[in-house]
Each structure stands twice: as C-alpha cells, then as structure tokens.
Design a binder for these strands. Structure first.
Length: 174
DNA sequence: AGCAAGATCGGT
DNA sequence: CCGATCTTGCTG
C-alpha cells in the first residue's frame, strides 16, 4: 500500500504490466496534479522481443530503457504523440511497460496529453521523483489480456504474445 | 544527406 | 481508410 518502491519495478515487464492496472499514477505538482488510476498496460520484454525498441540495440532514443527499473522511458512518435513507459528489471536489461490508459483517458497518446507528460519526464525516477510516482491503493480486479497494439512489424511469435492487460470494466472504452 | 516508417488519433 | 507531423535510425 502507499507509494511503490524500487523493488516493485525490478520484476520483469510482463509481471509489472499485470500488476499496474488498478494502481494510481500520482502527479505531484503543476496544473495536472492529481491521481490517475491505470486501466491498461503493455509489456515490452527486452532485446529478444522484436516489438521492443531495444531489440535493435542501444541508441540515443532507447538508452533510458537500460536504466534500473522505475525510471521513465518517454519517446515521441508520429510527429505528435508522447509515449509513457515505465522501465522494469535491473540496469542494462532493457524492458518497459507502456501505459496505454488511465481512468480518464484511453490511448497512450491521450494519457500523456491528459497528464501533461512530455520529454521533460524522460529518465525521471518513480522511486525518488517529487513530481510523479505510483501508489498502490489495494484495488484489485479482473484483467483481460490480449495481443499488443500497433506492432505488426514485429512478426511471430511476438505479435501474438498476450502482453496487453486491461481492466475488464474498461474493455468497452475505445 | 536523404528517406521510410512509426508502441497514434481523429476525421471521412 | 487516410492524412497529420516530425523524430529516429538506416542506407549510401
């Protein structure tokens, strides 16, 4: 209960992605300060996972994924959307969990827009940051799993891995 | 230096 | 289904 510490993020991405739904992202200060319950996540499992950016090696963009679990990996896609990812596992083991939805916002691009998250949050540490962290309120509910979205380029078997996790009640949302 | 594609979204 | 919009990473 309460603020989640470093240990939680040291597990692998699939484990963390399955535990995050129901927990809350807390924005400490600023215009968007508040609590947002996570409703949807996806796991990206490291160098072997062709859908994971780290599968093509360490680059300037993917470098934050090589930090210790608990740091944020933020990147910009399609010329307009910031993606919010939480790094998991130990240092130099590039895995991450994409936050695809919170209670008020569905879709990874809308989440960052809604919470005011941009490139300035890249590499932020959820275990020590004063402006963003995760809290476990004890809420637990049934999850729906399914294949990840928008990764057709990855090919099998990655394309079929059931590494998307959604709170059941949120399924009908788009 | 140039180019193709992207962990998306909203409108048609 | 298509266009917006721009960074990244690969090719040459």
């Amino acid at each position: 209960m309460g603020r989640v510490d470093r240990d939680f993020f040291l597990a692998d991405a699939v484990t963390v992605a399955g535990l995050l739904p129901g927990m809350e992202i807390v924005i400490g200060d600023g215009e968007k300060a508040g609590r947002y319950m996570i409703t949807e996540t996806e796991a990206y499992l490291g160098v072997d996972d062709r859908a994971c950016h780290a599968s093509s090696g360490k680059t300037k963009r993917t470098e934050p994924m090589y930090l210790e679990g608990g740091h944020l990996y933020i990147y910009f896609v399609y010329g307009m959307h910031w993606m919010l990812n939480i790094v998991t596992g130990t240092a130099d083991d590039p895995q991450a969990v994409l936050i695809r939805g919170v209670s008020q916002y569905s879709g990874p691009g809308r989440v960052t827009k809604g919470l005011g998250i941009d490139g300035t949050f890249n590499r932020e540490d959820l275990a020590s940051s004063g402006r963003i962290w995760i809290e476990d309120t004890g809420f637990r509910t049934e999850l729906i799993t399914g294949p990840r979205v928008g990764i057709d380029y990855a090919g099998e078997p990655w394309i079929s891995k059931p590494w998307r996790f959604i709170i059941r009640n949120e399924k009908e949302k788009k």
